[in-house]
């Protein structure tokens, strides 16, 4: 089993944290995982890219070679990374990206509905967790809760669950 995931957007959207959570959850589930990222020197804004490789075997090259999933949370990110031919699954945030022929999902809107748009990255993690199907939801939730600030557990748990529901309602 090998899954290569690439999440792109701009600084401040929490996409690196999303990658860390996916990688850590995969490790807790007994898989091999590597999480990497790229970002510029700007303290706000700027492009950001988070990559996770999950595998049943030890991983040599730590980056995405052939993405299984690309999630774009910014127009620029989508233009740069979401348009390569042959990516099996491309997902964009419907509030942030205009794109044809890809899955467009309301991560930001869903986050607002569960309480705050700041957890849109966790909604996305919930969605990805269901899509990838390599980590049980409980383990993913445990990992989310270990990586978010004290006092925000309920909000994040709701966001994660809402993301999973998004997948179940949009699958196929």
């Amino acid at each position: 089993m090998k899954k290569e995931i690439r999440i792109v957007g701009f600084g401040g959207q929490g996409i690196i944290l999303a990658g860390v959570i996916l990688g850590e959850a995969a490790t807790r589930a007994g898989h091999w995982a590597v999480q990497t990222q790229s970002y510029g020197p700007e303290s706000r804004g700027g492009g950001a890219r988070s990559e996770v490789v999950i595998s049943s075997d030890p991983i040599d090259y730590p980056r995405v070679r052939r993405a299984d999933v690309v999630v774009a949370l910014s127009q620029e990110g989508y233009e740069k990374y979401g348009r390569e031919p042959g990516i099996p699954t491309v997902v964009v945030d419907s509030d942030l990206v205009e794109a044809e022929t890809v899955q467009s999902l309301p991560f930001t809107k869903t986050a607002e509905e569960v309480g705050h748009k700041i957890v849109s990255n966790i909604v996305m993690v919930g969605y990805l967790g269901a899509l990838l199907d390599v980590v049980p939801h409980e383990l993913l939730e445990e990992t989310v809760l270990a990586n978010i600030p004290e006092g925000t557990e309920e909000l994040n748990a709701r966001a994660l669950a809402a993301g999973r529901v998004l997948y179940e309602n949009h699958a196929g």
Partner: peptide, 9 residues
């Protein structure tokens, strides 16, 4: 910077 910032088991 790659090894320094990447996360692994």
């Amino acid at each position: 910077g790659e090894v320094g910032h990447m996360r692994e088991r």
